Computed example of a mutant assay.
Amino acid sequence: MRFCENLETIPSSDKLTSLRSLEIRGCNKLTCLPNGLPASSQSCNLTRLKELTIGPFCEELDAFPAFQAIPQLESLKIYGWRKLKSLPEQIQHLPSLRHMKILGFHGVEAIPEWLGNLASLEDLTIQGCASLKYLPSVEAMQRLTKLKEIDIIGCPLLEERCTEESGPELHKIRHLPFIKIGDTRIEN
């Protein structure tokens, strides 16, 4: 589902148990997610889901709609909006996540420490986060032993803090084989 301007709710996902890829994007009136993705006590129905693209939703929301961890999810592309001050904490409970893109979280100033819990993460893109200044600690970043690539685009404050000359954030990712900050590839 993409750019469904008048969509306010999504039907239950009970029957979608074989679904491998799901996109719920740009639904500006949507305030909650389907029953298969809740934070409630129900079990997750989307157990075979490998790819999820989600957000942005209703600009009036102060928090990302709750969703339950999807154990087999390998790829997450998550879009935020201006009011959000943090990433959804549910992301830290995605043990199989290998590819993640964080896009448009304009109010987020720091990537949380729990990013270091994503042990399977191989590549990370952070794009269009205007207020972002801080990556997680060196210790959290080094726990990401499978992370090979980070790409930071359109995040002017973080890009400035990751410059080769004197950027205070660069040392947190310097150990990675592939680093791209804006249009610049940093060689290791």
Rank of each mutant, 00 (worst) to 15 (best):
T125V: 15
T125R: 09
I126E: 12
I126P: 10
I126W: 09
Q127G: 04
Q127L: 00
Q127R: 07
G128P: 03
G128T: 01
G128V: 00
C129Q: 01
C129N: 15
A130W: 01
A130N: 12
A130T: 12
S131A: 15
S131R: 13
L132V: 06
K133S: 09
K133L: 08
K133E: 11
Y134M: 04
Y134K: 15
Y134G: 03
P136D: 05
P136M: 03
P136H: 13
V138F: 14
V138R: 14
V138H: 10
E139I: 13
E139D: 13
E139V: 11
E139K: 03
A140R: 14
A140W: 04
A140L: 00
A140I: 05
M141F: 11
M141Y: 10
Q142H: 13
Q142A: 10
Q142C: 14
Q142R: 15
Q142W: 07
R143I: 01
R143L: 15
R143M: 14
R143T: 03
R143A: 07
L144V: 15
L144H: 07
K146C: 10
K146F: 09
L147T: 01
L147S: 05
L147P: 04
L147A: 06
K148G: 15
E149K: 11
E149I: 06
E149M: 01
I150N: 09
I150E: 01
D151G: 00
D151R: 11
D151N: 13
D151K: 05
I152T: 03
I153F: 07
G154R: 00
G154K: 01
C155E: 06
P156G: 02
P156Y: 03
P156F: 00
L157T: 08
L157R: 10
L157Y: 03
L158G: 00
L158Q: 00
E159R: 02
E160V: 03
E160R: 03
E160K: 12
R161T: 05
R161N: 14
R161H: 12
R161A: 13
R161Q: 14
R161P: 03
R161V: 01
R161F: 02
C162D: 02
C162H: 02
C162N: 09
T163C: 15
E164G: 15
E164N: 04
E164W: 09
E164K: 11
E165H: 11
S166M: 11
S166T: 13
S166P: 06
G167K: 11
P168E: 13
P168C: 06
E169S: 08
E169Q: 15
L170F: 07
L170N: 10
L170Y: 11
H171G: 08
K172E: 12
K172P: 03
K172S: 08
K172F: 09
I173S: 08
I173D: 10
I173Y: 04
I173P: 05
R174M: 14
